[in-house]
């Protein structure tokens, strides 16, 4: 099977290791990974602030880069949801692009969604250690309805123990531009998230969205915790 990987701008710019782990993981399952070099950003950062002219430009570019029949895999719930659920609505007045957006949306998957639903790879047999807890990010959970997939994958890691996080699907306070527009509220929510993570006594916290994980990592550091924060692609790829 061949897939196209959309790295996302956050991973591309700040966390390339997460992108590389995603590639290793997909290749382990026998998937041929193409990384379209012309890719940029899905437009989500502009869209959620209200700049639809900008997100429409980003979507138009995305649609022209990710052509063809192959599935598109995205290591982010919020970016995958942008493509799946928000792109078609951006082209209300353009039937050709709208059709293209719908076709693209239908073959776009968040990483764990792809692993479990398409590859049926939930029995990974990967190895790991220590206890791992999981933050359920907002768009992944509520827009894509990906709730069980990441947990199935984590539970399949031999030698590691999955521990459920209280209020796992409570927003961490990242919210894209929200973290810059209301930093005190954002930090306060991240602090509560960090308290819950510390409370379950996990060695590692993971999730499917690097933005949230970045926010959580900062809050844990401020709370003086050394709990490790890793994207689920890294947690899984390390166990290969």
């Amino acid at each position: 099977m061949r897939v196209q990987l959309f790295g996302t701008c956050l991973v591309d710019t700040f966390f390339p290791e997460t992108g590389e782990a995603t590639v290793r993981l997909l290749e382990y399952f026998g998937v041929d990974v193409a990384y379209p070099r012309e890719q940029t950003c899905c437009g989500k950062p502009a869209d959620s602030v209200g700049y639809q002219d900008v997100s429409r430009e980003a979507a138009r570019h995305f649609l022209s880069v990710f052509e063809g029949p192959d599935p598109i895999v995205v290591p982010s719930g919020s970016c995958a949801s942008m493509i799946k659920h928000h792109y078609p609505g951006l082209f209300k007045d353009d039937s050709r692009l709208r059709a293209k957006a719908e076709q693209t949306a239908s073959r776009t998957y968040e990483l764990t969604q792809f692993l479990v639903r398409v590859l049926k790879a939930h029995q990974t047999g990967f190895r790991g250690s220590g206890s791992i807890t999981y933050h359920a990010s907002c768009q992944l959970t509520r827009e894509l309805s990906v709730r069980e997939e990441p947990i199935l994958l984590l539970k399949s890691i031999e030698g590691a123990q999955y521990v459920a996080l209280p209020e796992a699907d409570r927003c961490c306070g990242f919210g894209g531009a929200f973290m810059a527009k209301m930093p005190e509220v954002s930090m306060s929510l991240a602090y509560e998230k960090a308290q819950n993570i510390v409370g379950v006594g996990a060695d590692t916290v993971t999730g499917c969205d690097q933005g949230c994980l970045m926010n959580i990592s900062d809050a844990l550091k401020r709370a003086g915790s050394n709990i490790s924060v890793k994207h689920i692609a890294q947690v899984l790829a390390e166990g290969i």
Binding site: Q39, M179, P183, N215, D218
Partner: peptide, 22 residues
Amino acid sequence: SGEKILGRVPQPADRSLRRRMS
């Protein structure tokens, strides 16, 4: 931006994913 905004974001990677993948 101040400590409360970009101070919470790590600095950009030395080599972006796009460069690593090409």
